[in-house]
Design a protein around this nucleic acid. Structure first.
Lengths: 110, 110
DNA sequence: TATTCATTTCCATATTCGTTGAATTATGGA
DNA sequence: TCCATAATTCAACGAATATGGAAATGAATA
């Protein structure tokens, strides 16, 4: 989770999300965001280690792409562990745009 | 967001979430989590500065409580900014436990 | 008032983090 | 092979972070 707690990494990740499954070349992101390539490489390492991005070589460029599943897991973790037992307090902000209707639920907390 | 990117702070916040609106005394959390009181005070400062907790004095103890609204905002921010344009990729993990039956059902994510 | 308890603030330290510059690996083309 | 491009690794630095001990603050109590 700490991987997204840094401005540059968050920017990078958002760009990759916008780029979609095709991803973007490292240099492309570097020039788009104005980050030095080696600095960006450092951040990529963090993102990759956190499982937030995947990488594949294409020619002489390395293509990075966001891993949606990990973000999904992160959101699930936050709602389960941080809002656990009281999802009605946190879920609305996330679920509202998709489906505002909720039922009551009962969940035990260790 | 960086406020939760630290193990101790995340633990503290989860405890406060579990404690509910009544909150917990600082010393109570300190002994429960095995964190030195002054160190904990440092982390409380971060959490409070991030708007994640509120504090109120009760007798000679300071009662900290989680602010659900901020977590709700955080989840909203993550879904909007990181999953923006593709909420169908992230929302399922959050919305599923509340009401699984409406559209297609997805396999559970770790 | 003096004392005691709970918590914070101050200070000092070891660690981690983000960044830069130089050197290195990897791919593609002449 | 040699060269250019793309990205990484390495070494190092300043800044921020997390932590603990000592002292100070605030509030209840005798």
């Amino acid at each position: 989770m700490a991987a997204l707690a840094q401005e540059h990494r968050l920017e990078v990740y958002r760009r990759l999300m916008q780029a979609g499954p095709e991803g973007m070349a490292a240099g492309e992101i570097a020039s788009a965001l104005g980050i030095a390539p080696n600095t960006l490489s450092f951040h990529f390492d963090r993102l990759r280690h956190a499982g937030l991005v995947s990488v594949a070589r294409k020619g002489r460029s390395l293509i990075y792409a966001a891993r949606y599943e990990t973000m999904s897991n992160l959101l699930g973790y936050l709602t389960q562990n941080c809002c656990g037992g009281r999802p009605e307090l946190c879920a609305p902000a996330v679920c509202k745009p998709t489906k505002p209707a909720r039922k009551r639920q009962r969940e035990n907390v260790g």
